[in-house]
Amino acid sequence: MVWRSARGRRIAYQAAAIGAALFVAWFLISNTAANLEERRIASGFGFLGREAGFEIGESAFLRYGASDSYLRALVVGLTNTLAVAVIGIVLATGLGTTIGLSRLSKNFLLRNLSAAYVEFMRNVPLLVQLFFWYAVITESMPGPREALSPLPGVFLSNRGIFVPTFSGAPELQGFNFVGGAALSPEFAALLIGLATYTAAFIAEIVRAGILAVDRGQGEAAHALGLSRGQTTRLVILPQALRVIVPPMTSQYLNLTKNSSLAVAIGYPDLVSIANTTMNQTGQAIEGIAIIMAVYLTISLSISAFMNWYNAHVAFR
């Protein structure tokens, strides 16, 4: 009788679904508890207060030493992740927009070279590209004493890339550089890899956005006497941006998630440090939970922003 009525059926299905989910959860949790006890692995997040005991190769903002807590180590990892993500996003957006616009150029060389760039970068896995850049920096670059200097103040060597900052320019002292900002080979490889890879996807988004604007808009603007540049700036781009922003934000999120590949080339991002922590304490579940919680927070924040944007800024 319950299953005769449609409403009854719906309730039954949902009850069954909840039941199944609860059963699975119970099954997993009870097994896990038993296994953890058998292997004498601790539970809980108490370990965060304990001394970490390992060094971290580089830290973007915070100071850290081996006697600091695990929690601090993880926070350093997080700031490292954010550092490479933010700079990567800025570089990728600039490069990607340029290439996207180039794809629409009337110039044959510009159009086809940028198309080739996009095709190549999109069809090779990011991990391969990261390993490639790391190999370029560590194998092909000369030592600091013979460092390449493509621009004044910028030095490329196999110990990393050195750039001038507001506080000073890098100078060679002995076997290494002092002053300015130093990008370690790991950071540089990760940054270049992420930026060039994501730029290819952003290029396609920009191109699609501009093509999405109705042809008549450009024609009307030209008929009114607006120049090509004015038309692009005042009529096409504002409309294209509304189509571009959602998928662009999605790419930003991808770049941030992709920065987790840092663990493969030795850059101490959040995943890297969480991995080390898990290996040392044996508390894998807590470690993975932390990683997932952090990334989920970032993704959900960006989704929330996107929803706000769609509701308020998109075309009525």
Binding site: D214, G216, Q217, E219, A220, A223, V235
Partner: peptide
């Protein structure tokens, strides 16, 4: 134009 082409 036939399709007006006003700037939305």
């Amino acid at each position: 134009f036939q399709s007006f082409n006003l700037f939305p």
